[in-house]
């Protein structure tokens, strides 16, 4: 028996991780590292916690929206409404929670809940009514934008005091933005290790088989959409704190950017491959590009062109490596 059907496999770097994931994240890490080195060599003053904290603070709204996008992409979808959920939470934070000079700070819970509700609505359209994710979120994108404009018609409002305090606070000398980035990463690692985490990947990889394994694809997707809504909302809340004001039209810019971040990080748009970890690196990479362009006093177009090029290079590079790996595996 044991002599039968040999398995061909690649030499493995680590024991625990599938090969693909490790070269994938290594590539993203390498790009990120290169950008960090460039940025530091241009502005050596950046090498202290406060400065890094500010940089991460700039990145955080994009980070959270991209985390939301990653979750949806992992289950084989795409979410055009992340920007909408972002601005609704943003508006709620500066109008309801921040309104009245901070008398209703507990309403922050409502901002979270609104995010979950919007994500869940997306999920219901997709799992309940059978809409394609792209279509469902194309519709809710503009609906959520409209809701945000209803709550906050123009830029303005004030975030609640505790949020402003949170922005400038430190934990053992480490700025909260950095702490938050680490917390997001750890939360993801824990989630990944749970039963639910495994199911996210199974559903994304192959819905029919996930179903055969006794997983309720609907329920998993619904939960993922809800969770994505929460993440996008956190992004909006954070942005309110960082900007000390609300911007009900800020969301649209994040939609395609979050897709770019997910792809640069290395999560497959086909679903079931990648994760939040690489997305965090991708978001930081894009933020660094902007920072470098700013530091060099270059025009805006340089940073736009550089981001688009990075996207193309990463994708084309991955496609080539993957093709190579597949060939080697066949031999």
């Amino acid at each position: 028996m044991s002599s039968s059907a040999p398995t061909r496999r690649l030499p493995r770097l680590g024991v625990a991780m599938p090969q693909r994931l490790s070269w994938n994240s290594a590539l993203t890490a390498a790009i990120l590292l290169a950008l960090i080195i460039i940025d530091l060599s241009i502005q050596p003053a950046l090498a202290n916690l406060t400065q890094i904290g500010l940089l991460v603070e700039t990145a955080m709204p994009l980070v959270m929206v991209s985390v939301a996008q990653t979750l949806i992409v992992l289950v084989g979808g795409i979410d055009l409404s992340v920007g909408g959920m972002f601005v609704v939470a943003n508006a709620v934070t500066v109008v309801w929670v921040g309104g009245g000079g901070g008398a209703h700070q507990l309403l922050i819970v409502a901002a979270f809940a609104v995010g979950i509700a919007m994500g869940t609505l997306n999920g219901l359209l997709v799992t309940g009514l059978g809409f394609q994710p792209f279509i469902a979120t194309l519709g809710t994108w503009t609906i959520y934008n409209g809701i945000a404009l209803t709550i906050l018609p123009t830029d303005g409002g004030t975030p609640p005091p505790f949020l402003s305090n949170f922005m400038v606070a430190t934990v053992f000398g480490v700025p909260t933005s950095i702490v938050m980035l680490v917390v997001v990463f750890l939360a993801w690692r824990c989630l990944r290790a749970t039963r639910f985490g495994g199911r996210i990947y199974a559903v994304g990889a192959d819905e029919e088989r996930a179903r055969l394994n006794g997983t309720s694809v609907r329920r998993v997707k619904l939960a993922v959409y809800g969770l994505a809504g929460l993440c996008a909302a956190i992004g909006g809340i954070y942005a309110a704190g960082a900007d000390v004001s609300g911007t009900p039209t800020a969301g649209d810019a994040y939609i395609l950017m979050s897709v770019a971040v997910v792809v640069i990080g290395g999560t497959s748009l086909r679903g079931g491959e990648g994760g939040v970890g690489v997305t965090l690196m991708g978001a930081m990479a894009l933020t660094l590009i902007n920072d470098i362009v700013d530091a060099l006093n270059l025009n805006t177009w340089v940073s736009v062109a550089a981001s688009a090029s990075l996207l193309l290079v990463m994708v084309a590079g991955r496609t080539l490596v993957e093709a190579q790996l597949r060939q080697r595996r066949r031999r």
């Binding site: 805006t300 177009w301 062109a305 090029s309």
Partner: peptide, 15 residues
């Protein structure tokens, strides 16, 4: 991804 990146390049050109 492809058309998003191309859009970015066109945008950069226009900027």
């Amino acid at each position: 991804v492809m058309t998003l990146a191309m859009g970015g390049l066109v945008q950069a050109f226009l900027l």
